[in-house]
Every structure is written in C-alpha cells, then in structure tokens.
Design a protein around this nucleic acid. Structure first.
Lengths: 124, 124
DNA sequence: GATAAAATGAGAATTGTTATCATATTTAGG
DNA sequence: CCTAAATATGATAACAATTCTCATTTTATC
C-alpha cells in the first residue's frame, strides 16, 4: 500500500467519528470539511484499510439477506469459501442477550450473530 | 394476512431448503420447479412472513456497512429507532469464538455480533 | 528526474431490494 | 353463491449501496 493523502484523511475522519459511520456518512463529513474525496476512492480505501486490519468493516452476511425457517434462538456461521450458512446452537453463549441487556441498560429485542471462517468441508 | 398459493409455495420451499437461502436462491429453485413466482412477490412474502415471525430474516446491520476504527474484539448494538451503533464489550460472552470453534470444528476467523433494540436515549 | 506501480476522480454499471399500478384472487356479508 | 372490499399478484421501473472502468495523477525507486 502506497501512501496517499486521501487515505490518511479518511482514516483520520473515521477516528474522529466514533459512531461507526457508514460510507455515506463519512462522505458527507468529508465534503463538509472541504476535503472532497470521490465516492469511489472512499469505498476503495475503506475496503483496503479493512483488508489490512487497520479498521473493521461491520456487516453481518454478505450483501444480501438470508432467510431461515428456524425461528428459535440460534446463531450462524458463514463459510467465507463456499458461502454456506450453518446453524450454531445458542448454547455457546447462554443468556447472551440477557447479559448484554444488563450491561448496557438497553432494551434488546434480538440479535444477529454471525461467525465467519472456513467450514469443515472446505478445510479438507 | 390472506391465504395465497404463492406464499404457501414459498414457505414450503424455504422449509425444504435448510441452508438459509437468499431470495435469489429461492427464486431459482422456484423457477426450476415450474412454480414461477414473480421476484416482487417473493420479496414481499419473505418480508411478510418475517414480520409475522413465521420465518427469520438474517442480516447484520441495515442495508449498508458500517466502519469501525476499533479493531479489538467487541460487539455492537444498533438502535432500531435512532439507528445509532453502540459498542458492547466482549465480556458479555467470554471466549465466545473459542467455544463456537470447539463445538463446530470450524475455523472461525471472526464474528459479527449485532444486537437490535432500543437504546437508553430513545427509551425515555 | 525517469519509470513502474499504485491511487485518484467521474461516471457508468451491477446488485439486491422496494415501489408503482393495473389486474387478479381471497374473504365475509347479504 | 354473488358481490364488494381487502389483499395479493406480476411486470417493470426506481432506488440505494457498492464496484468497475479507464484516462489522469501521485508515489516510490533507481
């Protein structure tokens, strides 16, 4: 990765905005501060920074939603290779929602817990 | 909700496809089985079924990705009202990733854990 | 300072999803 | 069982988020 002024600006702006902004939000902030950076450049750099572990991109599954016939509480694992989605029993973290609720004082209505990695089949 | 043949077909197809399919995947299956249902109808029904708790729609955050300058392990809470994203300490579920890994035998590289609900401010 | 590699900007293209609207189906009451 | 109101459908346009393309500019290297 070569140095670039735009990337530096983007990273600094992200550091100052602790609210986990979206790309669009960042784009607006940057424009307001007259460091107008092309939307393509912004997305490119966010992806690069995330790939290099400098920032974290937060999104559950890929682009698209998945639908699950099982409505009982359970979590999901998505294989980064074959893209299959597996169920993970909620037992791995008993009372997770309750604990989070106690700690934050927020009203928690649900959770989407998605683990990423490589499944058994693809690991062979 | 009125009865509809299409909705019944969609629900049955979803039940038979335990892999948490995307809408696109379902659309292809339906087409292959000659029960061709309009894409609009499919999306409409999936949303309706999810709203009525009959199926579950799995997706982390809203439509768009959020970016986080903090790369240490921690979870997120998104307020369904004001859409703000809050951090939740990873302490609520110690060794969550390790436990999930032990249980499944998968290689887990990361997790996106997103709680949904109403934050303190909006609860007032 | 010349050159190759990497980054940029602008806008077109793509993808997943929702909205529109005219037509068809379902449900309940007379 | 007929009819009116509510609801659902299909086709396609619209939309929003993101990625791609490509000609130009910037960065690192020798």
């Amino acid at each position: 990765m070569n140095y670039s002024k735009q990337r530096e600006t983007i990273l600094n702006t992200l550091k100052e905005n602790v609210v986990h902004p979206t790309a669009e939000y960042l784009y607006d902030v940057l424009k307001r501060e007259n460091s107008s950076i092309s939307l393509a450049t912004l997305y490119r750099n966010l992806n690069q920074l995330a790939e290099n572990g400098i920032i974290k991109k937060i999104d559950g599954l890929e682009s698209s939603s998945h639908y699950d016939h099982n409505t009982h509480e359970h979590y999901h694992f998505i294989c980064d290779k074959c893209k299959k989605v597996y169920d993970i029993s909620a037992d791995v973290a008993p009372d997770l929602v309750k604990k989070a609720q106690d700690e934050t004082g927020f009203t928690i209505n649900g959770s989407d817990i998605v683990f990423h990695g490589i499944c058994k089949d693809c690991n062979k």
